[in-house]
Amino acid sequence: MALGISGGALLLGTLADRLRRRGLSEALFAAVTVLFVGAELALILRAPLPSLLPWLVISIIGAATVLSYAIVAEYFLSELTGRANAGFNVLHFGWCFVVQYGTGLILDQWSVQDGHYPAIAYQVAFASSSGSRFWR
């Protein structure tokens, strides 16, 4: 995962720089978001793929959140960019808390079996949080 996110940061940073010059920063962010949701759905639905593949995609895309800060900077004057990104960061952390807390609430609807929740509990919880990640 660490290698994936490191490589993803380099890859996405390079792509973002090249696409920004063409005005396509938002298109890259949208494509990465769709790819991320697809990888999560592959795990949730137990697609007939080696599980390493969707996890690799998720780790690479883990670096994509920084793309949103660059996009926000394009909408604000340069002297307001820091404040806008700080506000956006508060929203990121707040939404992450809500999603993680909600995931825990969903998991708690099942009884622990052999020290962990059943697979269906994780599938339902992660499916619920996948939809919410798509909209943040």
Results as ranks from 00 to 15, higher is better:
residue 33 T to P: 00
residue 33 T to G: 13
residue 36 F to N: 04
residue 37 V to M: 08
residue 41 L to T: 04
residue 41 L to G: 00
residue 45 L to I: 02
residue 45 L to G: 04
residue 47 A to S: 12
residue 48 P to D: 14
residue 50 P to V: 09
residue 50 P to N: 11
residue 52 L to R: 06
residue 52 L to S: 11
residue 55 W to L: 15
residue 56 L to N: 06
residue 58 I to C: 08
residue 59 S to L: 00
residue 59 S to Y: 03
residue 62 G to C: 05
residue 62 G to E: 08
residue 62 G to Q: 09
residue 64 A to Y: 04
residue 65 T to R: 01
residue 66 V to L: 10
residue 66 V to M: 12
residue 67 L to N: 07
residue 69 Y to F: 14
residue 75 Y to Q: 11
residue 76 F to K: 03
residue 76 F to W: 13
residue 79 E to P: 02
residue 80 L to E: 13
residue 80 L to K: 15
residue 81 T to E: 09
residue 84 A to G: 08
residue 84 A to W: 02
residue 85 N to S: 11
residue 85 N to H: 03
residue 86 A to P: 04
residue 86 A to T: 13
residue 87 G to R: 06
residue 90 V to P: 00
residue 92 H to Y: 14
residue 92 H to F: 15
residue 93 F to T: 10
residue 94 G to M: 03
residue 94 G to R: 00
residue 96 C to H: 07
residue 97 F to V: 07
residue 97 F to Q: 00
residue 100 Q to I: 08
residue 102 G to N: 07
residue 103 T to I: 13
residue 104 G to F: 09
residue 107 L to M: 09
residue 108 D to Q: 14
residue 108 D to S: 14
residue 110 W to L: 04
residue 112 V to M: 10
residue 112 V to H: 03
residue 113 Q to E: 14
residue 113 Q to H: 09
residue 114 D to M: 07
residue 114 D to S: 14
